[in-house]
């Protein structure tokens, strides 16, 4: 094809972003230029949270678990930037340590629900028939309960603790992936490349997981982000209700619960800062999820 760059009378003005990308190799730039503002914001915030979580492993201003490092209910100051709670633990240190729990638990749970849900959904979507009916009826039963209520019920039954909370979250999140994967796989099951894959010697598993699934991952990956935001909320809710992690764990929901007595008496900081942290993290996940689903939207592909 003869392609030439032609000057026309009024070229559209180059945006700042475009000029910024002028220094980056073309292919990368083309990819980056598709990232929207919400992508940058969401990803930036998340990287910030991950940084804090990592940092808290090595350093926090004070020991997050040690009561009495300061006076009870000290208001924010240079020594205690976010103040202290009733027991005199440093809020900033606890908040930093809490990032590990809220982020870590939600990511592990999301990874688990993604893997299990996608696996079962692919089987259900590709094979159909009895397997599909059985899997889908089970999913419908689970989804008949509101997810948060369901999570509370199970945690109450099996008891608190990090592993149990992860298990519950993975379980509650899994049906959405399953449905999504099932739909995507089903719609591609009769594509010609699936038939072609059979003729070159693949069995059904090979076709489903090697050929069809990789083409379905976009929307599933975009959903992980939305799911993670939900997971953070559930962790914090369980913590707030005192049925998630043990009450002295520096988890954000726990911290809000611990500070709720102070709200009436003027110690607003104890509950406010964990709340802001939760808001920031769910916001980041939602922004990212929104941007990713735009990015993976087949209608936007050329």
């Amino acid at each position: 094809m003869p392609t030439t760059q032609t000057d026309i009378s009024s070229p559209p003005p180059l945006s700042v972003r475009r000029r910024l990308f002028a220094v980056i190799p073309t292919r990368t730039a083309a990819m980056l230029s598709r990232f929207s503002l919400s992508m940058w914001l969401g990803a930036g915030l998340l990287i910030f949270y991950v940084g804090i979580a990592l940092l808290s492993l090595f350093w926090t201003p004070h020991d997050p678990a040690m009561p009495g490092v300061g006076p009870s209910y000290a208001s924010p100051s240079w020594a205690f930037p976010l103040g202290t709670d009733r027991l005199g633990t440093d809020l900033l240190s606890r908040l930093m340590a809490g990032t590990r729990y809220d982020l870590g638990i939600s990511l592990v749970a999301v990874f688990l629900s993604f893997s299990i849900g996608t696996f079962l959904g692919t089987i259900s979507g590709y094979f159909g028939g009895m397997i599909d009916s059985v899997i889908m009826r089970m999913v419908e039963i689970f989804q008949a309960f509101p997810a948060l209520l369901f999570a509370m019920l199970i945690v109450q039954t099996i008891g608190a603790g990090v592993v149990n909370v992860i298990a519950v979250l993975a379980f509650v999140g899994m049906p959405d992936y399953l449905r999504l994967a099932r739909g995507e796989v089903r719609s591609r099951r009769d594509w010609q490349y699936a038939e072609a894959a059979r003729l070159v010697g693949n069995n059904s598993w090979g076709i489903a997981f090697k050929h069809i699934l990789p083409n379905c991952l976009g929307p599933l990956l975009a959903f992980t982000s939305i799911n993670a935001a939900f997971a953070v909320l559930v962790i914090a809710s369980l913590g707030f209700l005192g049925i998630g992690l043990s009450p002295d764990t520096p988890e954000w929901g726990n911290m809000i619960a611990r500070g709720q007595d102070g709200i009436m008496t003027g110690q607003w900081w104890v509950s406010l800062f964990p709340g802001v942290a939760i808001l920031g993290m769910t916001g980041a996940f939602y922004l990212l999820g929104d941007a990713l689903s735009d990015l993976f939207d087949p209608r936007r592909r050329t």
């Binding site: 594509w191 010609q192 490349y193 038939e195 072609a196 894959a197 990789p214 083409n215």
Partner: peptide, 8 residues
């Protein structure tokens, strides 16, 4: 050949 080759 568009549809019968796996795009990935």
């Amino acid at each position: 050949p568009n549809a019968s080759l796996n795009p990935r």
